[in-house]
Nucleic acid binder design. Structure first.
Length: 757
RNA sequence: GCGCGUGUAGCUCAGAGGUUAGAGCGUGCGGUUCACAUCCGUAAGGUCCCUGGUUCGAAUCCAGGCACGCGCACCA
């Protein structure tokens, strides 16, 4: 026998993968009149390396893709990477810091060049890792969100929104990361519990005359951020609060600054919290900003973009916020205005990229008005055009969509798509700044510095991956009326037949934490630009937790490198082990045991196949179809029935994204029903001449179909066996493109009900 | 605060209104000529979180509670 008695993944995986590549099995082809099965990969960050979540998600996608490919459906899985604005910029900045430099010394052009160099050198790591995992992506279609054509599409999308009047520049209190030096959208924050304090500060009421005697001399406010009080321009109380009934409209003297500020009424003030009176800092709190709008309050910015006190902060100017806080508290204490201090645990926003505390400050940024975009995206889910799996995520999605705020899309970093916004160099006095939006600005205009939120471009992923001039697909030939609109938006140059054929995609499989950041935005973008949903099913895979039930994360040191698992146990074992643990309802508390068990299973498949091959060597066996099989013994009949049930159950479970149950069924069937029972039985049957021929037939038949069913889960070992088996039995040239078992008996043959009729 | 999820063998998890509740790993015992020791056979191991309700029958459905995890939120 040619093959070894132990399955050695390392010896076959590379070779098998090359074999698939060489024969273009992963290529997506347009087959007119046939509805394709299309998946776009959630593009990993170029800075990333494969973590367990990627390994899981891409295993599951590959299972679906391979199954559909075998079913004979035109199948395409588009791979690619995301430029990941802030994340990538941070990586390169860190590298620069090691050399004692910063990006400002380099200048914008030089810095961006450096990032591109970094991307060229390291950006492909994760792609190579996906290949190791066995992902059957169409690599000829690999995309990067900063590809030339992709960028063109991003620009067109911006222009489109702008023309509609949905993009505007506005002054708001935004989240500002002092470390990354950029604005962040609300969902780019991570709220972490921080043990802080609640300080109670007295704001004296202004006396009408020097000697006026007041019943109440102070209003006490509670704050977690005393340094912002320097920017206070009011104190707000609930209009129904009896305690403050008589002070609304009165004037207070802001301590330390001496500024006169009014007491105003505002519904949203919680009477129960603190003292029921809240200091109002319109420049540093979004709610206060709203109060300020209503009461026409000044916005006094006391903290700047570097996290230091501005000159508006009087004697505290130039101090870092923390330092200013301490000084202010000391000064208040001295003046007897600090009533008390309470320990207070609260949620503080941190930057999702660098982990530093985020400042809130007033700033001029670009926004997308969400009003008209949200509604169709809500409808599409409500009317079932997009289904969530598991279904409960639908509610999570809808809750967010129904409470959408405008999307802050400008970032003050350098790595990304620059806004196609230009302004006239010379600012004429008393005249609004002249702005041009688009690709060819008139003379004298310069482009503004901001770049777009990374998620603005990834929102276009299911569209933009099919927009490419020099793609394998040619420019649009068909004059499909449906695409007229898209042509108008993106222009002739970008539209290809691919877009017409492969959009909308079928399944989007992703992690729950980017449901808002990415999935929701793809949905409304798809509906806006294509007037059609970008995918019909959103599958949310379980989160991979470690043994302690903590989320696996590299930064937390709770990660586990899937590549190490592949090295140790093989890609098949890693994949099967992950799929096995994907049960649909629960998060996945990762256990290496399951990978070990799967490694053993791969070996079992290998050896059972070896046994079958030994039995049929030199037998010149002509493989019969199921109809041609003649089960002679009870064991024959049982194994064929069990195979049919397995085909049925695997299909059922995969249709419902029940990967674990499908894997379990295959494991049970192959190991216990086929190997433990039938293979043992066959040894007796093979002895006598009477049963020998049919037993051989059934052995091969069962093995061949098992390999097919197992292939999406364990592509390497099954293909390796197939290639060997092919030498003695006439089979399709490759398992990957062979025909998925779907005999009439199997599709109809539910697990047999004991009483028919 | 609101919402979501989970609780079943030592561990990780399936299952689900109806005999005796299952798997993998782990554990005990026995087994190496004859595909595989990454193996085979066999055994032990469960108050299905608690309380109440519906039912002929509940681990399963309902209500309440407890525990853990997660998401959202403008309690300053």
């Amino acid at each position: 026998m040619i093959i070894d008695k132990r399955y050695e993944p390392k010896e076959v995986e590379g070779e098998i993968y090359d074999f698939w590549l060489k024969n273009s099995y992963f290529k997506g082809k347009i087959v007119k009149g046939k509805k394709p099965f299309v998946v776009v990969i959630p593009p990993p960050n170029v800075t990333g390396s494969l973590h367990m979540g990627h390994a899981l998600n891409n295993t599951l996608q590959d299972i679906l893709v391979r199954q559909n490919r075998m079913k004979g459906v035109p199948t395409l899985w588009v791979p690619g990477t995301d430029h990941a604005g802030i994340a990538t910029q941070n990586v390169v900045e860190k590298q620069l810091a090691k050399e004692g430099k910063n990006r400002h010394e380099l200048g914008r052009a030089e810095f961006v060049k450096k990032v591109w160099e970094w991307v060229d050198e390291y950006g492909d790591i994760i792609i190579k890792q996906l290949k190791k995992l066995g992902c059957s992506c169409d690599w000829s279609r690999q995309r990067f969100t900063l590809d030339e054509d992709y960028s063109a599409a991003v620009q067109k999308a911006f222009e489109h929104y702008y023309k509609k009047g949905w993009i505007y520049q506005g002054e708001r209190v935004i989240n500002w990361c002092v470390r990354c030096q950029t604005a962040l959208s609300d969902i780019e924050l991570e709220h972490k519990e921080v043990e802080g304090s609640l300080w109670f500060v007295r704001y004296p009421l202004k006396l009408k005359t020097k000697n006026e005697k007041l019943k109440t001399k102070y209003i006490t406010v509670a704050t977690t951020r005393p340094e912002t009080m320097l920017g206070d321009t009011a104190v707000a109380v609930n209009p129904t609060d009896k305690r403050y009934k008589n002070v609304v409209g009165k004037i207070l003297i802001l301590p330390l600054m001496g500024r006169e500020i009014p007491v105003v009424a505002f519904d949203a003030v919680d009477k129960e919290f603190g003292t029921g009176a809240v200091k109002v800092t319109p420049a540093h709190d979004p709610n206060d900003f709203e109060i300020g709008k209503i009461h026409n309050l000044a916005k006094i910015k006391v903290i700047d973009e570097l996290g230091k006190m501005t000159k508006e902060a009087g004697k505290y100017a130039g101090q870092k916020t923390q330092q200013a806080r301490e000084n202010i508290l000391q000064d208040l204490q001295q003046k007897g205005l600090l009533l008390k201090t309470q320990k207070y645990v609260h949620q503080v926003p941190h930057c999702y990229r660098c982990g530093k505390i985020v400042e809130q400050l007033v700033s001029k940024q670009w926004f997308v008005n969400m009003q008209q975009l949200a509604q169709p995206a809500i409808e599409a889910v409500k009317n079932g055009k997009i289904k969530f799996e598991p279904k409960r995520w639908e509610k999570v999605y809808l809750d967010w969509m129904e409470n959408l705020k405008d999307w802050c899309i400008s970032r003050q970093i350098w790595w990304g798509h620059r806004l196609p916004v230009w302004q006239l160099k010379v600012k004429i006095k008393n005249e609004k700044l002249k702005i041009y939006v688009g690709g060819n600005p008139p003379k004298g205009y310069t482009q503004i510095d901001d770049v777009l939120d990374t998620w603005f471009s990834s929102a276009l992923w299911p569209i933009a991956v099919f927009l490419k001039k020099n793609s394998s697909s040619e420019k649009l030939k068909s004059q499909n009326a449906k695409l007229k609109r898209v042509l108008d938006i993106f222009g002739e140059d970008l539209i290809t037949d691919d877009l017409e054929y492969f959009y909308p995609t079928t399944v989007l499989s992703t992690a729950r934490d980017i449901l808002y950041l990415w999935v929701a935005r793809m949905i409304f973008s798809g509906l806006e630009f294509m007037k059609e949903v970008p995918f019909t099913t959103v599958y949310i895979h379980p989160t991979v937790l470690n043994a302690e039930g903590k989320r696996m994360s590299k930064s937390l040191g709770t990660g586990l490198d899937p590549i190490e698992l592949i090295e140790k146990y093989g890609a098949d074992a890693t994949r099967f082990g992950l799929a096995f643990q994907t049960t649909g309802t629960q998060d996945l508390r990762f256990s290496e045991n399951k990978i070990v068990a799967s490694r053993n299973f791969a070996n079992k498949i290998w050896n059972a196949s070896r046994f079958v091959m030994m039995q049929i060597a030199n037998s010149k066996l002509q493989l019969k179809s199921q109809k041609g099989l003649k089960p002679n013994s009870p064991a024959d009949r049982v194994i064929l029935e069990q195979l049919n049930q397995t085909i049925y159950l695997v299909n059922q479970n995969l249709d419902k994204f029940r990967f674990g149950q499908a894997a379990e069924q295959l494991f049970q069937f192959f190991w216990h029903q086929f190997c433990d029972i039938y293979l043992e039985q066959s040894k007796k049957q093979l002895e006598g001449k009477k049963l020998r021929g049919n037993t051989q037939q059934i052995l091969v038949f069962t093995l061949v179909n098992s390999l097919k069913l197992l292939h999406p889960f364990m592509p390497f070992v099954t293909e390796a066996v197939w290639q060997n088996l092919k030498k003695t039995v006439s089979l399709e040239p490759a398992l990957i493109s062979s025909c998925w078992p779907h005999s009439a008996e199997a599709t109809r043959g539910k697990p047999k009900a004991s009483s028919k009729n």
